[in-house]
């Protein structure tokens, strides 16, 4: 279980918002970090603290397949994202980078930015005294997450770690 401060975004947060094309080709994720969410909230990247969480509506991460999007969120130290739903490529990319995504239909409508949530992965999230059920991930994804992402899983496969 961990607790996290909530940053709240809306529906259809697309990958161009999470990281605009201009910054995609920077050599490192560290260089990209300050520009995360910049078209929507230019100051957000500087405010997010390691361990914070993002709460959003439907279709989080829609748009392009740019894996820089989940990577940059992870690099900001975001502990998890809780959204009503995710776009599929973003979902895969996030898991492959070891970023925890949680689907929850009700929480978004009932919490505010700045609230503190207590997250028990695979079980529940508690905010403002209310508990929200969350599902566990399919086994194949849990394996990747547990390995710490796809790169580490592949390194293991190739006998490197």
């Amino acid at each position: 279980m961990f607790s996290a401060k909530i940053w709240k975004l809306g529906d259809d947060i697309d990958t161009d918002i999470i990281l605009p094309t201009e910054y995609l080709a920077f050599e490192t994720v560290q260089e990209m970090k300050p520009y995360a969410f910049s078209p929507l909230r230019p100051d957000l990247a500087s405010k997010i603290q390691p361990g914070d969480m993002i709460v959003a509506g439907n279709n989080f991460g829609c748009g392009s397949s740019r894996e820089q999007a989940p990577e940059v969120v992870k690099a900001l130290g975001v502990s998890c994202i809780v959204a009503k739903s995710y776009a599929r490529i973003f979902f895969r990319n996030a898991i492959n980078n070891g970023l925890l995504l949680i689907e929850q239909p009700d929480l978004f409508d009932e919490v505010s930015e700045g609230d503190i949530a207590e997250v028990t992965p695979g079980k529940e999230i508690k905010v403002n005294g209310k508990s929200y059920d969350i599902a566990s991930l399919p086994d194949n994804l849990t394996e990747i997450l547990e390995a710490g992402g796809l790169v580490k899983a592949m390194r293991k496969r190739n006998g490197l770690d």
């Binding site: 392009s64 894996e67 490529i89 990319n93 790169v151 592949m154 190739n158």
Partner: peptide, 13 residues
């Protein structure tokens, strides 16, 4: 379908 570069790296291997 589109995928991220980490998955692509996995496929390449």
């Amino acid at each position: 379908t589109g995928i991220g570069y980490t998955e692509m790296a996995g496929i390449l291997g």
